[in-house]
């Protein structure tokens, strides 16, 4: 991708987005997502305050991602174990 596009967005009726990007008007359901977007896409024009908000949101993401990855490791382990058990059962039966 040469550059990230501005995707079309639709906001469901009766819902107000919690945040909108001040540069491209893209709506977001959470403040943090908007901060991340501004820091990633509009890094060259954003203000110091926005840069700080981005750093904060990014740090929170890294923490959340760590717990997410813990869960992923568990799911991979369980899948592996289940497949080994199924194969043992099937191959053992024949």
């Amino acid at each position: 991708m040469t550059e990230t596009p501005t995707p079309e967005t639709t906001v469901p009726d009766g819902e107000t987005p919690r945040a909108r990007c001040p540069y491209c008007d893209r709506p977001f359901g959470r403040e943090a997502l908007c901060d991340l977007h501004v820091g990633e896409i509009h890094a060259d024009v954003c203000t110091d305050a926005e840069r700080e908000a981005y750093a904060e949101a990014d740090e929170q993401e890294v923490d959340d991602l760590f717990f997410y990855h813990m869960k992923v490791v568990v799911v991979i382990g369980v899948s592996y174990a289940l497949f080994v058990l199924v194969y043992m059962a099937v191959l053992g039966a024949t």
Binding site: M1, T4, P5, P7, F28, A32, L33, C34, L36, H37, E40, I41, A57, D58, E61, V62, D64, L65, Y68
Partner: peptide, 9 residues
């Protein structure tokens, strides 16, 4: 990763 911000989204 090109269209959604952050890492988890």
């Amino acid at each position: 990763f090109e269209v959604f911000p952050g890492r988890l989204q």
